[in-house]
């Protein structure tokens, strides 16, 4: 059964379906079959974290999951966060605090941060550092990413009240 099968799932709130061979990685499925190239691929062995997306609310390495395993799942990617004129507070904070340079790690950073702040809106610096440490960034030295997530957390809490 190496033959392709149809994978049906919900991506960023929209039902989507496309065929995939069982071996197709979720990262490739999102990028090639669904044209969601915002999810990046840097290592394909789980280390860099650029490919991190949310599956049923939890961050996962999309390079270490088969697309067929996402059958029926709810997947969220950077494209679902916000647009240039309607940014998610995390996107805004990354912009404000210079939390990105080349932007290649950014999808992974953002999705890890989304998972963190949605499950723990009052996350402090150490929790933020822990969450962010799963993704490599070769450009920023990380500090401004932590500051951005902190700022977003504060802002989101303010809005929540």
């Amino acid at each position: 059964m190496t033959t392709p099968r149809t994978v049906e799932l919900v991506v960023n709130g929209e039902p989507r379906a496309a065929d995939a061979e069982p071996r197709m990685l979720l990262s490739d499925f999102l990028r090639e079959k669904l044209a969601l190239t915002g999810t990046h691929v840097g290592c394909e062995h789980g280390v860099c974290g650029a490919c991190t997306v949310l599956v049923d609310g939890e961050s996962v390495r999309s390079c270490l999951m088969l697309a067929v395993q996402a059958q029926g799942a709810e997947v969220r990617t950077i494209e679902g966060l916000g647009s240039a004129d309607d940014m998610h507070p995390l996107q805004e904070a990354f912009w404000e605090k210079h939390g990105l340079q080349c932007g290649f790690c950014t999808p992974g950073m953002l999705m890890s941060a989304v998972e963190l702040l949605e499950s723990n809106p009052t996350a402090g610096r150490d929790e933020i550092r822990e969450a962010i440490s799963s993704t490599l960034c070769r450009c920023t030295g990380y500090q401004t990413i932590v500051e951005a997530v902190q700022a977003a957390a504060e802002k989101m809490q303010g809005e929540g009240q």
């Binding site: 059964m1 190496t2 061979e21 069982p22 071996r23 990685l25 490739d28 394909e44 062995h45 088969l66 067929v68």
Partner: peptide, 9 residues
């Protein structure tokens, strides 16, 4: 770096 083909159950 892509997986080789396999049957999947």
């Amino acid at each position: 770096m892509k997986p080789p083909p396999f049957d999947y159950h």
